[in-house]
Nucleic acid binder design. Structure first.
Ligand code: FES
Ligand code: FES
Lengths: 165, 165
DNA sequence: GAAAATCCTACTGCGCAAGTATGAATTTGA
DNA sequence: TCAAATTCATACTTGCGCAGTAGGATTTTC
């Protein structure tokens, strides 16, 4: 039941880009992201490259380059991103919707474990395939505002700007 | 989001012992279990040994030995068994109830990923910490009976015995 | 043209999952 | 009492995938 570091970092980066974007800073550099999240730069670079190839972010090269979102935030669901990086959500393949594989069980239809894990898979998918980046970003922003915390990656000049109307 | 083979095999064995027990055959040998579930004998042996050390099953050595349940089926929940073999249910440690560890996130309180994963963890735990072996065994038996299938590991002499009153 | 960024590919280290292998200890029945 | 059948204990193997590093190529801006 584990999310890989790779996936964790990727999602954290995605959320950060989303937040920054929402605050009027649509593009972030890998080095900024890595600094804020305290992640290895080159590793994060790789991950973003993968997210780019899958169409979640786009990049600008060269000086003042960086990464920005390639689709609307409310169209980015977490499930597919996690599947991309970590593979199926299901705890065992025989209950995976997206990449089924049969197991050695003699009777899949009457397998108790399978029933149980199907339940688990559905519970996981129900959450991850429904929540969008937009929702998470919004909730996070609201929380930050309520607690009067300023998002770290903003330029000093942009701090202390009211987030909500 | 993966259940290890070790854990899968362990749970399958547990369920089988539960079913057999319910049908009046409280003790099964490793070789029987391995044959029915098509698993490597020695590997399963190891796993059962671990389950024994944790108090889920007990064993009898020597000829006609084998493994049987060490506690009431309705006291065996799946969550703890999985935690024993595979570790925490939570996708990331910062949302684990049983083995928390902080991550590199600069602000755990306002971390969007953490919120999301907390939701996932709770959904998983809600299922796995509630279902008991007794329930899974019962459901399985009902299904088998409805479909008129005879559990494989019964002795020939015991087949065709009505399962339900 | 220099600096600053992304892009690309290869490589590494190493820990762990998934078993194998070997033999000792225990129980039963002949 | 001995042989067979079983669990118990420990050590070993093998391969793979995670979590990065390393180094340089390419693109963009000033
Ligand atoms: S575990 Fe997949 S069918 Fe039993
Ligand atoms: S992922 Fe653990 S606090 Fe952000």
């Amino acid at each position: 039941m584990n999310l890989s570091k790779r996936c964790e970092y990727g999602l954290r980066a995605l959320i950060d880009i989303g937040i920054a974007s929402e605050l009027g800073r649509p593009r972030l550099q890998v080095s900024e992201l890595a600094a804020k999240e305290k992640l290895p730069v080159k590793f994060l670079e790789q991950i973003l490259s993968q997210l780019k190839a899958a169409g979640y972010v786009k990049s600008k090269r060269g000086k003042f380059g960086g990464y920005s979102l390639a689709k609307r935030m409310d169209r980015i669901k977490f499930g597919p991103v996690i599947r991309l990086i970590d593979g199926p959500l299901a705890p065992i393949r025989c209950v995976s919707e997206t990449s089924y594989a049969c197991c050695t069980c003699p009777d899949e239809v009457h397998c108790g474990l399978r029933m149980l894990m199907l339940d688990v898979r559905n519970a996981i998918a129900k959450i991850l395939d429904r929540y969008t980046l937009a929702e998470i970003v919004e909730i996070t922003l609201r929380k930050l505002h309520r607690d009067k915390v300023t998002p770290l990656f903003l330029q000093p000049s942009m701090r202390f700007v009211s987030i909500l109307p």
